[in-house]
Amino acid sequence: MSAAAVLQVAGLSTSFFTKAGVARAVQDVSFTLGRGEVLGLVGESGSGKSVTGFSLLGLVDPPGRIVAGSVRLEGQELVGLPSHALRKVRGRRIAMIFQDPMMTLHPVLSIATQMGLAIAAHERVGRAATRARCIEVLNRVGIPGAAERLDAFPHQISGGMRQRVDIAIALLHRPAVIIADEPTTALDVSVQAQILAEMRSLVAESGTSLVWISHDLAVVAALSDRIAVMYGGRIVEEGPTDVVLTGPRHPYTQGLLDSLPSRAKPGTELVQIPGGTPSLLALPEGCPFRPRCPRETEICRTMPEPTGDALRRARCHHPLVLSPAEAA
């Protein structure tokens, strides 16, 4: 790996202990994020991608908790850190942006107040300096008339502007890593494209690493250096974006690619993956994709181990493209 590792996740598992049983939302997730790298975390709803994001920040609410694994941020272990120490890391060294900007900003506090609180959470800064810093960051995320917007309330600005404010709050302390949980899903397509472009340049110029969580393969393809595909709480395939898109090894990734509307010929029916996502309370034995997989055989009743190396690997007994080791 060329860039130094900023975030190293190994064997991360998060479960929710509900009355209906134990939901294993995230199981044995491992990946490494280099400085300035963008990792796209793709999966359907219920694949565990959002819970992975929250686990990285230690923000899993009861009845859920991290049951195993390690999250190392710039060498520091975050799993098992006491809550006050974890709070000091959140927002300062690892930040998060959420899906729906209509829900994340406090409806009756001004933007200045909310940004001010986010600064005050980690630094003692005077009023004037706080304001100047807020304006500077708002300018950076492309908000016109930042000085006036700062005194506005969230209901007075558009959804795209709100998401920019969220991004600005995440950028306030120049964190090493930002987790972005579907931040463009709730926005208009045109605004989506703007924010994607801005995000890419922001990350590039500040050297921030990004974990971009999305169900939309097209969005992830446009933004990320590498892609990790999640299914049933596990990463089933990981690799450089172009390699995964052109030569997927896991049948699930192939299914996702085939079902992209842009790949369908006009007038023909869209391709679907048969069946639905499994319940995390009752995952099938062995490979979680087995019941929906066209290549399923008897061996799929055992959990496949990841094959390949840290750069390019998949979790499948019958990969579509063989890794060099397997081909040999």
């Binding site: 923000l59 959140r90 930040a95 900003l105 406090h106 959470a121 709050i169 995440a170």
Partner: peptide
Amino acid sequence: KFARAAGLS
């Protein structure tokens, strides 16, 4: 959740 993610106590 967002406020917590920003490090607010």
